[in-house]
């Protein structure tokens, strides 16, 4: 359990690091850290209860996407300012690395038995990596597409001023 909380904490740190790399406004730094931590907690929490890594990543990214829309209202910044740094801690770097190593090994191997095993591992890691990446990207942009029939601020604006844009 403590490990889970620590994972959430370090996810938040990773999100803040990327937020600074992307030069976000200062007022959004803390929310982004919290968002990264929540996303990490959801993802690793689901994995803790035995859910597969692809689906956990998808749910985590969706939660980040939904909360980032609320944050956009609160902090007056577009949702992508929150959502992109928020999902980056879930990037499947380890699988990508293992796939790379497998690829390098394949170039050098001659023996057919180990060759097949290495090939299987590589394809497995590569498939996991690409599906996690896809589920992250789709999960984080879905909430925005569903709630944004037009624009976050426009719905409020039209009611007040009756302007057709």
């Amino acid at each position: 359990m403590l490990e889970l909380l620590l994972k959430g904490f370090w996810s938040g740190i990773a999100a803040v690091g990327f937020a600074i790399l992307f030069n976000v406004p200062k007022r959004t730094l803390f929310p982004i850290g919290a968002l990264g931590a929540i996303g990490g907690l959801v993802k690793f929490g689901l994995m803790y209860f035995g859910v597969g890594i692809v689906f956990s990543s998808f749910v985590g990214a969706t939660v980040v996407g939904i909360i980032s829309i609320q944050m956009a209202h609160l902090k007056n910044s577009p949702p992508l300012v929150f959502s992109i740094p928020g999902v980056i801690p879930m990037v499947p770097g380890a699988f990508a690395y293992r796939m790379m190593l497998g690829l390098i090994a394949l170039i050098q191997l001659e023996d057919s038995d180990t060759y097949i095993q290495t090939l299987i591992d590589m394809v497995n890691n590569g498939a996991k990596m690409s599906f996690i990446l896809m589920s992250l990207a789709i999960g984080v942009s879905m909430p925005m597409l569903i709630t944004r029939k037009e624009s976050i601020k426009r719905s409020k604006f039209n009611k007040e001023k009756k302007v057709t844009v």
Binding site: L6, K7, W10, I13, V16, G17, F18, P89
Partner: peptide
């Protein structure tokens, strides 16, 4: 220096996650 240290911290965060 802020950029370097926070991105470095993000790197070690990733390392913990893995």
């Amino acid at each position: 220096w802020v950029l370097l240290t926070t991105v470095g911290a993000a790197g070690s965060g990733f390392c913990y996650l893995f």
